[in-house]
Design a protein around this nucleic acid. Structure first.
Lengths: 249, 249
DNA sequence: GGGGAGAGATGCCGC
DNA sequence: GCGGCATTTCTCCCC
């Protein structure tokens, strides 16, 4: 379908179908920020929830977009087509000026599936909670991923000397921001409990030089922990992880 | 095009064309994390740089993706098609199992345009640098957006009493992370210069309650500043912003 | 709806 | 390549 039938387009939006458009176009956007993009070949997608994406032929992210619930209409202006989108609630506006249409697809799509994802920071916290020896012998977790009154702490517990321990997990490299975050939680716990000594531990598979320096300066500790991957071994009912040794306990 | 011609597909990838596929499919991914997604209707895009995106009919973000430079091949397995993608360098792998094809487009797309974006944090820093009175009377900026030896400081300068000032800009609401960041820079400058007093200012259009409390506790200050929007008034050569008054200077 | 934090974040720039 | 940081971040969860 090389031609863009305005009636088909309007009907597609009305019926919450998905629209895919390959076209040479330019884009102007104004809302939270402002942007301008000259003419080039792009893929434009309007989803059933009225999300609009403009994709260049390279890169992971859309170069321009409008959020869910936007309103789109299309009209002729001389030889060109204008696709005008607006989201009044968010005060966002976009004009796509279309010079040439390469392809045009309309299709109702149905998808009620949700993704199951493993190896996130939350899974790291669970793993540590269920395998305290990953931190150290005698560590006794109290909570994980909980909105405590001290903030959202990944893993919270006592060490063998009954000193409180705050653990911040990062699934990738520990960086200055992660140490900032750990420090903020540790200080909040110290103040709230009136304690002098609360331990802070950063658990991640890697540590940046600046982060290491900050950790040392604050008297915090580092533990090498990798996010768990257990797609085949994962039991959705039990959520048990049996492959991590507790031999140090 | 309702049929997916395996030859057309292979040739498209070879010639760096863009492939758009509407299909009922399931997705499994393994790499930095692991994920599993049951059958549903989706749009699959392979870009000329071999980025792969899987989009559900709602939402801004791809539900699954492979990064630039991945390798994709497709083959029949019984009644179904398997699209297998891998990125050896990143140790990432994906299988898309295709049950039904709704549409299939192949097209070479060309786009050398780059977006011009206004109203970013960098523009806020430029605006303050060029209009110091936005901070206060007598403020003298030294640098902006520079990798100083104290870190990457948005705006750095002296106040009228020759006290050093570190300014952190945020284009949206100032939050605890922003105060952490400001604090880190201020402390670095203090230590490096052996100073007792270095001022910290958070410049943003909004401040969260927790951030306000942290600012006060640290003795830092808040300035109401909005990111500039000046699409029509922007002069690319001069980069001057004339609409902000300097009457306080 | 706002606040707080993660993300398979991505993208950009600098070293 | 890694480090550090912004993003029209987006998304989720909780208040």
């Amino acid at each position: 379908m090389d031609e863009l039938d305005l009636g088909v387009f309007s009907e597609a939006l009305e019926k919450s179908k998905t629209v895919i458009l390959g076209a040479n176009c330019s884009v102007k956007y104004s809302g939270r920020a402002e942007s301008s993009l000259g003419f080039g070949d792009r893929v434009v997608i309007i989803k059933s929830d009225k999300t609009l994406l403009v994709h260049q032929p390279t890169g992971s992210n859309p170069i321009n977009y409008m959020k869910e619930g936007s309103v789109h209409r299309i009209f002729k202006e001389g030889k060109q087509l204008i696709m005008r989108s607006s989201n009044i609630a968010l005060k966002e506006f976009m004009d796509i000026c279309i010079k040439k249409v390469y392809f045009f697809n309309v299709r109702g799509l149905e998808d009620n599936e949700k993704i199951q994802l493993n190896g996130t920071e939350q899974h790291m916290a669970e793993m540590i909670y269920n395998n305290p020896a990953l931190v150290e012998k005698g560590f006794r977790p109290l909570s994980m991923e909980e909105h405590t009154k001290f903030g959202f702490i990944d893993v919270f517990g006592y060490d063998r000397e009954n000193t409180l321990v705050v653990i911040e997990c990062k699934r990738y490299s520990g960086d200055p921001k992660a140490v900032d975050q750990l420090k903020r939680y540790v200080e909040k716990v110290r103040e709230a409990k009136g304690l002098v000594k609360v331990r802070g531990i950063l658990a991640c598979p890697k540590l940046s030089p600046a982060a290491r320096q900050m950790l040392e300066k604050e008297g915090f500790e580092y533990r090498f922990v990798k996010p768990p991957k257990y797609l085949e071994k994962y039991d959705a009912d039990q959520k048990k992880i049996g492959e991590y040794s507790d031999s140090d306990a």
